[in-house]
Amino acid sequence: MKSVLILALATALELVVMLAYGATSDHIGLIKTMAGEVTITRNSQTIKAAPNMKLMEADIVQTGPDGKAGLILDDDTVISMGLNSRIAIKSFMFHPNDKKLSLIARIFHGTVSFLSGQITKLAPEQVHIETPYATIGLRGTHVLIQIN
């Protein structure tokens, strides 16, 4: 009887862990438009991107010498990348109900247009764009960034 109970508990715990994992592994956006070569690096693995491919938190998106890409995040943020550009969505939380809001993007190099979405409206202090030499804070707007 005791062992059945333990088994039941273990199964329940596993379910909770799975649910928690499922919640964090939900997609946070997608590659809406693209041209040329574009890759996504996730968990140290790099794959070729295709239009409509879903994005996860911590993904790195890279465009090749002939590549460009347009991303839409779940809070309506629109990011577009020119040739030879590399960015990471380091942190993305969009749960207005629980007031869990955060967006940290990093631009390594290239040309990027960042059109802010709802997180910037609801919690501007939680939105940062990191670049090699400076960090950008936003109050609801459209920013263009070039890093040689």
Binding site: S116, Y133, A134, T135, L138, H142, I145, N148
Partner: peptide, 23 residues
């Protein structure tokens, strides 16, 4: 290496907010 330029442009709806650039 890595020289950066950051510019503010209007939103598609014509409004524009503000940005801060810090290091």
């Amino acid at each position: 290496a890595k020289r950066s330029l950051v510019a503010l442009v209007p939103d598609p709806d014509g409004k524009s907010g503000s940005i801060s650039v810090s290091n």
